[in-house]
């Protein structure tokens, strides 16, 4: 008998104990345990080539090692400092957002387009920038604009503030989605 609390959530297969084999059910359990123990022993001494495995999942959606490696290699070409953990986190976020987009029956030719459509619909459309906020930003950062007039930089400030707000809200939205999903990374 083994108990697991919140601070101790890992099991070890070799701690499984079988006590009674009277019924066929118990026999099945016994055979299962024997096979498990046997395979553990055998695999400890043999060499194997891994074809693929699950490195993370979001509810019923799996991310495999080969997928991760493929994405990692592609991103590394443009951002050499990126880590596998960061790629995996991005991949999980992407799954969460795509899943929501599909729930809304949004259609787009590619997954990237689908994501953009979803973010536009769910996040961007709800952002309303006030003119005074754009003015405030200009006044607070006047030195940075090196004497340029407000009218000349207004659109750029608006675009910057909009993207900043989109990122902020998107981050909150992802956190909300993460809290509702069963996510596990096992790199």
């Amino acid at each position: 008998m083994r108990y697991i609390s919140a601070s101790d959530m890992l099991f070890k297969s070799d701690e499984l104990r079988v006590t009674s084999y009277k019924s066929s059910h118990n026999l099945r359990v016994f055979i299962f345990s024997l096979v498990t123990i046997y395979s553990l022993l055998v695999t400890s001494f043999s060499h194997a080539e891994l074809i693929d495995r699950v490195v993370a999942f979001v509810d019923e959606e799996a991310i495999t090692l080969s997928e991760l490696e493929e994405t990692y290699e592609n991103i590394k070409k443009v951002d050499a400092s990126i880590t596998r953990e960061e790629v995996l986190k991005t991949r999980i976020n992407r799954i969460l957002l795509l899943r929501e987009a599909r729930k809304l029956r949004i259609e787009a030719p590619t997954e990237d387009d689908l994501l953009h459509e979803y973010i536009d619909l769910k996040v961007r459309t709800f952002i309303k920038l006030k003119e005074e906020d754009i003015g405030d930003f200009y006044n607070r950062n006047r030195a940075e604009f090196k004497g340029m007039e407000f009218d000349d930089v207004r659109d750029k400030i608006e675009s910057y503030l909009l993207e900043k707000e989109v990122n902020l809200r998107l981050k909150r939205h992802i956190e909300d989605l993460r809290s509702k999903a069963y996510i596990k990374a096992q790199l």
Partner: peptide, 22 residues
């Protein structure tokens, strides 16, 4: 890879790996 992702849709798995003997 596609197979692992498909099997996972069953909703009962925590981990799956496929190996070949070296």
């Amino acid at each position: 890879r596609n197979g692992i992702k498909r099997v996972f849709l069953k909703g009962i798995f925590e981990d799956i790996s496929v190996e070949v003997d070296d």
